[in-house]
Design a protein around this nucleic acid. Structure first.
Lengths: 341, 341
DNA sequence: CCTCTGTATGGAAACGTTTCCAGTCGCCGG
DNA sequence: CCGGCGACTGGAAACGTTTCCATACAGAGG
């Protein structure tokens, strides 16, 4: 159906090698010949086959991008960064989302590897050793770079990270400076599980600010809307002694705002709220939400660079990218305890 | 470097045809032979080359997705729909964003066509006849389906649309029912340009509700944050007689909410606000924003289906998908005029 | 015992490029 | 006038698959 290089060669009365040279720009071609070839190609609506080309040259197969979902503004912005990075390198991007399901994630990665992508950028949802093994398997076929996550079992796969610890520390220092002592961390690890970097940074910073061990209130939550809401409701209903809430993600921040409104708590009058991840609606809240902004776009771009440019001397743990505290109106001095206990 | 089918055949002591049959599942293969081949493939970490396969079979090259950007929640959800549709058909998705620039958009589309994608789904930013011609050119090489837009000059390219007209009509009827007469439409076409479907539906519905011609206040705005903000500010500062605002997009809705807050207008006490496009933060607003919800995910999926399944008898204008009014707290009965004029 | 059908297998020809290797031609310096 | 030496061109061999065709063999039916 579609015209091939052979058709063009015949139409222009030249050899196929010449047509190839015209389009790939490799060898020398006479000006008149080139014109004739171009005209024939236009007439036939010829477009070179990327499949044949990449079969022959084993080049430019694109890079794969695997995300939990696009509904998260952080992920979306990271994706735009990857897109920008890929464009800089003249590569295209294959996208798939996992919906947080490690099985779908592994399937997507395997599929990309089969497409002979030059590399894969992923925000993995995986957590179990089996998942990590699947990723290690993929990494043997093509380069893999994680963004915003580290996967314990998958040694040798570098991660591009934001400096969450520093961001949380600055946020806690800010709250402590306002006078808060009893602060809750919304989105802690389940009891017994190892706490993440954000939770550890939270505890350390609060201790450094002179707070008691019991002042650090850790509220576990799993990363979905319902769990976030339940956690926020449980916290704000039962712990009237807490004067500030640090939400470990925008889903949790959203839940905290919603619950506070339903309980008729004033922000920041009754309780101060801040969160990690600066999303567009943080500005639209009333009051606008103080947040730790993480450079999502830059992270995507860096992941691309790591994959495509620094493939030789790929550092296992590149320096984390700076996170920045964006102060808005949702935090203020603490009021007296709201009730007993 | 990577193992080929020939290596596997040699390692397993069989012919290459047999290995091919094992992996493509086309011909019959003895159970013992299959096991031997699979073992050899595992040992060599063999993965079939998608390039070679699609060269030979001219199949499954994926589908291209071109969006203005991922920061728009509507676009992001539409993309998830396309992803889901593609997965159903066993296709993968190539993504690129244009940032609203017709040139980048055309380049992305041409690139995808060269990749021999089975088709392209796009939310085009293009508008000029030249842009339309570029799209028509691409459409000759592979199937194209537009989503959420129609491009006047590009005949023969079908569009998947939501029933914006019905959505706006229901919204205006709702406002009229609350008692509003003088209503502003934020996001009208520039004076002299042809008004879009939403604006036309707005005018018609308001007239039907018994309002005067002068009651329909059209405020032009271009599709970016700054212009939206300027338009909203201009409207709310100068037209105190307007009791309700219909924003023709979430950017404009956001601007209206922000400006109203800055001017200390109470919503819906002083002015009612509603918008087209239900985005997550609509629920987080105080008060939550009434909006016309459009089925973005479904639109993406339908676009995919149109491209991959109904390619033969592709209807030029499939029935628009229903939009739904989601009533929240941002609209109420009109108050007396806020001031003179 | 011979043929016939069916299942397993291998060889080889495509698919549309790129690129190596020759070959043709015009032109310059000797 | 001739030996190169460029610039330009065409033929053909890959690249890694799929698939058509031929072959081999086993069992069934005559």
């Amino acid at each position: 159906m579609a015209a091939t290089i052979k058709d063009v060669a015949a139409a222009a009365g030249v050899g196929i090698a010449t047509v190839s040279r015209v389009f790939s720009g490799n060898g020398p071609v006479g000006a008149a010949t080139r014109e004739r070839v171009l005209a024939a190609a236009r007439a036939l609506d010829y477009r070179p086959s990327a499949a044949a080309r990449s079969l022959k040259t084993r080049g430019a197969a694109g890079i794969g991008l695997v995300l939990p979902g696009l509904d998260d503004p952080f992920a979306a912005e990271l994706a735009e960064g990857v897109l920008a990075g890929a464009r800089d390198h003249g590569e295209h991007v294959l996208l798939d989302v996992s919906g947080g399901d490690p099985a779908r994630e592994a399937a997507a990665a395997a599929r990309f590897a089969e497409q002979r992508v030059d590399g894969i950028v992923a925000v993995p949802a995986a957590a179990t050793p089996a998942d990590a093994a699947a990723w290690a398997d993929v990494a043997r076929a093509c380069g893999v770079v994680f963004a915003d996550r580290v996967l314990p079992g998958a040694a040798g796969i570098p991660s591009v990270l934001a400096d969450d610890a520093a961001g949380v520390r600055v946020l806690v220092e800010y709250l402590a400076g306002l006078g808060h002592r009893r602060v809750a961390f919304l989105g802690a690890a389940a009891p017994g599980a190892a706490p993440g970097v954000r939770e550890r940074a939270f505890r350390a910073a609060l201790r450094e600010a002179g707070a008691d061990e019991r002042d650090a209130v850790a509220v576990p939550a799993r990363p979905n809307r319902d769990s976030a809401y339940a956690a926020a409701a449980g916290l704000l209903q039962s712990r009237a002694d807490v004067t500030a809430v640090v939400a470990s993600g925008h889903l949790l921040g959203e839940a905290a705002v919603l619950v506070a409104r339903e309980l008729d708590l004033r922000v920041p009058g009754d309780v101060s709220i801040a969160m990690v991840d600066d999303v567009p609606w943080a500005e639209l809240c009333d009051p606008p939400l103080t947040a730790v902004a993480r450079p999502a776009r830059l992270m995507g771009q860096r992941a691309c660079d790591l994959l495509l440019r620094d493939r030789a001397r790929r550092p296992a743990a590149p320096a984390p990218l700076p996170a920045e505290l964006v102060v808005r109106g949702s935090c203020g001095p603490p009021r007296q305890a709201r009730g007993p206990r």
